[in-house]
Design a protein around this nucleic acid. Structure first.
Lengths: 344, 344
DNA sequence: CTGAAAGCGCTTACAG
DNA sequence: CTGAAAGCGCTTACAG
């Protein structure tokens, strides 16, 4: 019975070996570490491979080499603009080196988080980068068991087992607060994140540090615990502006919080920055287009992603030092900040 | 010499077979298709596997079964909110069924696009979903060669080879334009996407259809070709408002365009919707928080992603019909649209 | 119910 | 410079 190769399975090493009249070992060599293979043989094999549309199977190769050229990237949700920006940097650096990335959304669901950890085990990835806050710690024990390097990006619990790249939260927040102080503000609020993220702790510390340095009193009533989303910012603004002696400026945990704050100020019939100044954190692409454009702290997100990936590559290449990279933030002054209104 | 299993390689089937005193075939059976294996043996093996932290290697399994439980998802850039929303739906549906996704950003670079196509080949994915516009067509030839199912999401060139899930662009755009007409607008502009996307063609058709149905003349000067980004919206508004007889409403190709339009209206010292009404398309999460919140057409993005994944799963399960799913859009009226100002 | 064997598609010492 | 062989970690007929 004749073969009917309509949609055929991909050609294998053996197939091209048969076509070329050599052993499959020779084909393998010719196609890669070509050391000491007759150059005419190489040309011939390469030509035949190309003609037959041969593409090496990554799974066959992975089994033999015991590495998969594969990285797992864990985010809470790719729907988050910060995560998306970071992932694009990771993916770019990975692709440039022949690595593919498995994307996993851990979500907020503990079951899914555990499933992520498990799947990961089975996929035999060469490395992991985690940008989700909560899952980070889960990996560390497994890490030490499996020996696969992990790099945590803006994540809690960077430990001796894990490598990390982090934004310089404290310094940057201090600078953001200082900017407000320089503008003449004296009552500056902070809308944070109530989920107990390390970033929140550090950004809050930066805020307090700037206050202290300027001999401004810290007033607990001026801090509100939001959720890192617009809702938190909206709630925060409502509370803060209802105060007997409201703030004239607010430093927000992140841009999404600031976007909510902006919206709520507007709903209250007030204006930014005339009635109140607002500073965000992240410099998401969208905040150039808010009304007014947001003053914020830029995190070089794609670059941080690239750094995380390159750190992984370093480690895979044999580097055995622990990498803990701190990336500086940059204050971007736009139009949501101005001197406070004159007192009546 | 004693073994020093500090960071050891993962346990294999053989390891647990040795521990359990059975053959590795039996372990394999016990751990999966447990048909006709002594239940006590199963229990014992499972216990030992759990204790030794055994996790089947997906690569070993893939080689044997000739499928990888892996899907490639191609987007232009994950940084695009639409793509991120869709991907989150795909990932969710995939994870629920034990599939992992390889994320590939095709970018705008032809080289990268080709690399994506190649890498894909080697990874031996079970299926592909493409949400990038330009790459779609590239896959079709390879598809027929490799026999891996592909589903195109809001993508051009859905052909006989490919399955697709698409938003009902024309109907939804028609409804959006009709909304403006119902409000009393007579001069309605369209800011499109100059990249020749099929979505643009269809959305423009919906716009024209609504105009025709209402016996409103089509005026070429009222269409501007943007780029699907805020810049395009900004440019478009500038041009349109500089017209001798400017429009009172604008239907935008997508939300990002509308966001730029909103910003530019503001820069020009005008107000939405008092001076001009704006409608977007997508209903990105952010547009609830713009000032004012945007009237737009909702695409159920995560659900479309889930549908794409489930379509793939269907096909992998043996369905051999061609799937071409059309998803209806939904007009969401918020605050960026209002009746036109009275004529002076 | 269980084992021995073959095979999935590669890589890589080991000989020659 | 090239081939035969073993092995990576699984699955799955084939016997028994």
């Amino acid at each position: 019975m004749a073969e009917t190769p309509l949609t055929l399975k991909p050609a294998s090493l053996k197939d091209v070996a048969r076509l070329a009249g050599v052993s499959h070992s020779t084909v393998s060599r010719a196609l890669r570490n070509s050391r000491r293979v007759n150059s005419e043989t190489i040309d011939k094999i390469r030509r035949i491979a190309a003609e037959s549309g041969y593409r090496a199977s990554a799974v066959g190769r992975s089994l033999a080499t015991r590495h998969t050229n594969t990285i797992r990237v864990v985010v809470t949700t790719i729907t988050d603009a910060f995560a998306a920006e970071v992932v694009s940097g990771i993916e770019e650096a990975a692709a440039a080196r022949g690595y593919s990335i498995f994307l996993a959304n851990s979500g907020a669901d503990p079951d899914r988080e555990m499933r992520v950890v498990h799947t990961l085990d089975e996929r035999r990835v060469d490395g992991i980068v985690v940008t989700a806050s909560r899952v980070g710690a889960l990996y560390v024990p497994m890490l030490s068991k499996m020996g696969v390097p992990i790099v945590l990006l803006n994540n809690q619990h960077p430990s001796e087992f894990a490598h990390s790249v982090m934004i310089a939260n404290t310094d940057a927040s201090s600078a953001a607060t200082q900017h407000l102080i320089d503008l003449g503000h004296r009552r500056i609020a902070y809308i944070g994140d109530r989920n107990g993220r390390q970033s929140d702790t550090e950004r809050f510390a930066g805020y307090r540090h700037a206050l202290d340095a300027a001999d401004l009193p810290f007033e607990p009533e001026l801090v509100f615990h939001g959720d890192g989303n617009p809702e938190g910012g909206m709630e925060g603004i409502s509370r803060l502006l209802a105060l007997p002696h409201p703030p004239t400026a607010v430093f927000c945990y992140d841009d999404m919080t600031a976007i909510g704050a902006l919206r709520q100020v507007r709903k209250l019939g007030l204006h930014v920055p005339d009635d109140i100044s607002l500073v965000g954190f992240d410099d998401l692409p969208i905040v150039r287009y808010t009304d007014p454009p947001l003053t914020t702290v830029r995190q070089p997100m794609p670059q941080m992603g690239r750094l995380a990936m390159e750190t992984l590559l370093d480690i895979l290449a044999g580097s055995n030092s622990t990498h803990n990279i701190k990336v500086p933030g940059e204050l971007i002054v736009r139009e949501s900040t101005a001197p406070p209104k004159e007192k009546l």
